[in-house]
């Protein structure tokens, strides 16, 4: 039921446990499909020491929640979780987790993909690069390909 499907949204500095979060969303037997997406920090060929994630407290959580509720309604998801880390994140570490549960696989895949595509372009987070040689790089530029990815759902 779209009206009472659990929507779990968190912004946190700590790492998350994808398996534990998945277990939290399942268990009552309705779900036939779980899609779990984890976004990681790349090392950019050894150049990068860390990404620093900044967010707009309050709006970040509200915007992700709005996106998740839209995904639940649009794809009739049984549940959705979106957890985004902030602060300094080293290569290989987790940045973002999205879990969608649904009766069948297509809705779960689409729901997770929809949430990620909107989260990247509408949720107020920004990445700054810190390089392995000690230099602080610039702020990561927004990608046109991310805008196009979102537009395909319009």
């Amino acid at each position: 039921m779209a009206g009472d499907a659990p929507v779990i949204v968190r912004v946190q500095t700590d790492d998350f446990d994808a398996a534990a979060e998945t277990a939290r969303l399942t268990g009552d037997g309705d779900a036939g499909a779980i899609v779990t997406f984890t976004g990681l920090c790349r090392d950019e060929g050894g150049m990068l020491a860390a990404l620093e994630l900044e967010h707009y407290p309050g709006m970040a959580e509200a915007e992700i929640t709005r996106i998740c509720r839209e995904a639940v309604a649009r794809f009739s998801l049984l549940g959705i979780a979106a957890i985004h880390r902030v602060g300094k994140i080293a290569p290989g570490e987790n940045i973002v987790l999205v879990i969608a549960t649904a009766p069948h696989r297509h809705a779960a895949f689409d729901g997770a993909s929809f949430v990620m595509d909107y989260l990247k372009t509408s949720a107020p987070f920004w990445k700054k690069e810190h390089f392995a040689d000690g230099r602080t790089g610039g702020w990561v530029d927004a990608k046109e390909s991310d805008d196009r990815a979102r537009e395909k759902w319009a």
Binding site: G39, L53, H55, Y56, G58, M59, A60, A62, E63, H84, I95, V96, M116, L119, K120, T121, S122, A123, P124, F125, W126, K127, W139, V140, D141, A142
Partner: peptide, 26 residues
């Protein structure tokens, strides 16, 4: 007030206005 708006939207009644670059989370 923590919701996206367009540049030509009115700001009347705004408690909090945020300005920021295009977002790069995820």
């Amino acid at each position: 007030n923590q919701e996206h708006v367009e540049h030509d939207d009115p700001i009347a009644g705004a408690r909090e206005i945020a300005l920021f670059p295009p977002m790069t989370g995820g």
